[in-house]
Design a protein around this nucleic acid. Sequence first.
DNA 1: GTCTATAAAATGATAGAC
DNA 2: GTCTATCATTTTATAGAC
Lengths: 204, 204
Amino acid sequence: MSQSVKPSLKERQFALRESAILDAVDSFLARKGFDLMTMDEIAQEVGISKASLYKHFDSKELLAAATMTRLVERTLQVIAQQAQEDKPLDNLKALVAWSVREHLAGRMPTLPSTRSSIHEFMTRHDPYVRKLEALTEILGGWIIAAQALGQINPSLPGEVVLYTIYARPCDPVIDFLKMGGAFTDDEIVEAIVTTCFGGLQSRA
Amino acid sequence: MSQSVKPSLKERQFALRESAILDAVDSFLARKGFDLMTMDEIAQEVGISKASLYKHFDSKELLAAATMTRLVERTLQVIAQQAQEDKPLDNLKALVAWSVREHLAGRMPTLPSTRSSIHEFMTRHDPYVRKLEALTEILGGWIIAAQALGQINPSLPGEVVLYTIYARPCDPVIDFLKMGGAFTDDEIVEAIVTTCFGGLQSRA
DNA sequence: GTCTATAAAATGATAGAC
DNA sequence: GTCTATCATTTTATAGAC
């Protein structure tokens, strides 16, 4: 840490380019997913050659892993900003709302579904796994607290609540509602949050 | 119709092989999705050559379309069997439960997400679109009836309810819960139905 | 580190014999 | 209609010059 007091111009250029690459991958992963995204189109989008891209990331898998790791970091930052003491349910709702908005803005790279060829790779990628564990610990605490307060259904297993929240940003319902064109982004966010936490049935 | 009174042995063999192909595609689409599924592995699984496979289906897209069309037909048959008069909410819940069980059994080919390269093709494939419209009409009727009875939240737009139900069989939560190994199939079905219709929050 | 050019592998689709 | 052999294309990844 202490040795990088003043990054050189070259280092800053390198970091800037790397950030631009990850931004592009965010967008491609959101639009096409890992398997349909190609290294050619990433290089083209960033405006560099494919060989240069491979100087930054040794493989397509590592590139996706870096992007997903940065997403978890971003999520941890957002959580640190907007979390409120003793309001676990509100915190969980705010997180879902934020992630749906990120999805609608095209910045939400697909969380690895179990079917994707990248999934197994991610489970072995230590930086990602560790950060995801940190996030899971925070959410787990909120879930337990919300259940203790009677806000979240206490009869639901914690994993069910956790996975249901993790799955929201890649919910195909978001895209279907967006495609139809009949709803604003705010209405879509509200629809997802309402159905996620309140369900389809009328509240008694 | 009336001319195929007695199908020949050859015709029955052909139909049987076609059914075996579609069964294999069901499984591959469920496990890997359209883009990762290859014509080679389908032919190998069925035990025929790839050229023979192309005699049955002219392209990978048409093969997937036939599989998805058969799924909608199967769904319509299940609905005809298990639907109860004047119980729209129960009918919707039973449909979700059935589709989750099909997913767990490996027989639920992925519904085309908007990101998949097959999605646009499906929207232009008439047999599929027509059958899906028939299914949508039935579900739409149940949703309206359930809202009129105060069972489904009347403030939710019909599309939101419909898409939320359509998205359930490809919910990644199913796979995550299955992978963890801590839940039986019945418990997973119950978890999805409960969170879908009841939401995460406690009922007042 | 960046580029052009190319290797190496996977895969959708077809030719042509039987 | 089924097979073997092959084509054509795409795409990940790298070699080698500068």
